[in-house]
Write a protein that binds this DNA or RNA. Structure first.
Lengths: 190, 190
DNA sequence: ACCTGAACACCGTTCAAGT
DNA sequence: ACCTGAACACCGTTCAAGT
């Protein structure tokens, strides 16, 4: 047998720093900030602790890397939305809401907000992301034809609703399929 | 030799729950909330961990007991001040300020305020104490002859100054002896 | 009633040694 | 370059056994 040409295989591959980051997101998502332990990361990645300390100097360094990676992720989706000014505003809003409401991300978002309660850097990152999303939502309302003040109000409601959903929903989260659309119809009423 | 009649001796005596509480205050004072560890308590009291678990069910229970004890301490001094309405208001203020400014208590007060940042129960206790002190200070100003609004302003300034001192001072704290008196003179100007 | 002593689980960190 | 394996320090918790 020849050595496989596909490098990124779950077992048997060497790890990159990003693999540790992704594992961290997973742990955060289903255990909250307190689940962020080196042991559990190693378990998930099938390596020993020594590996962790080759990629990161210590736990604090790893946490910083995680927070920065999360920030970059959100910057990415912000750019995606900013590249949509040509798209129909209603469709743009639908994409925004659908993105925010994906259950897959819920748990991580919630964990970051809990973490923000005790970590300044996390708080700053979350707030930065929130401001950007809010701005994009407001712009969509403006482009839809609402007056600036009206747009500000409606975007605030949409944003607060989504964040509220984040915390209210039990994690089992069978999200009603058509609810986003009905919600948007309501928010776009003249 | 006959067995000594004085029971409360530092070495060789059995411990009460209050001994653990006092040791906790000491640790808090010179190490902050993170210094509150069972090991260090045992070191201080010359016992092993098993002893701790005889007096308290677990760390959380101990913390609750500590917070409650701290609250009682402050309730005590509040009562002391409330029993002073017959005393000259200026003297009353002097006592208040002198009590709050005793370097011996500074470190503990600071630790409690840091702890309050991450513990609801601690926060509640600190705020409860603050309200009571503030009320006593205001009453003294009123009794001194100031109008209610003026008294409210002056008491707020006095209180804020003291709390500010708590955090600003380096812990070495060679507190200027006569400063409280001069401060009071200033605050009692018509 | 109060405490010792030993053990365990958990977690972060280090480091010589392997490939 | 990347990882193992073993060790260490720290900390909370349990419990049989002692006085």
């Amino acid at each position: 047998m020849l050595p496989s040409m596909t490098p990124p295989r779950g077992s048997g591959r060497r790890l990159s720093a990003d693999d540790w980051i992704q594992a961290g997101f997973a742990l955060l998502a289903d255990g909250g900030p307190n689940a962020l332990r080196i042991d559990r990361l190693c378990e998930r990645l099938n390596v020993t602790k020594g590996s962790f300390y080759w990629h990161f100097t210590d736990m604090q360094g790893y946490r910083s890397a995680l927070v920065e990676a999360w920030g970059s992720l959100h910057d990415q989706s912000r750019r995606a939305f900013e590249d949509m000014h040509d798209v129909d505003p209603r469709e743009r809003l639908a994409v925004l809401v659908r993105t925010l409401v994906v259950p897959q991300h819920w748990a991580l978002e919630r964990a970051m907000r809990v973490w923000a309660l005790t970590d300044e850097a996390v708080l700053a990152s979350v707030q930065r992301s929130d401001r950007r999303v809010l701005r994009a939502v407001r712009q969509a309302f403006v482009d839809y034809g609402f007056e600036p003040e009206d747009a500000a109000l409606r975007s605030a409601v949409v944003f607060a609703t989504v964040v509220g959903l984040l915390h209210a929903s039990d994690s089992t989260g069978e999200a009603p399929q058509e609810l986003p659309e009905r919600f948007l119809d309501f928010m776009l009423r003249p």
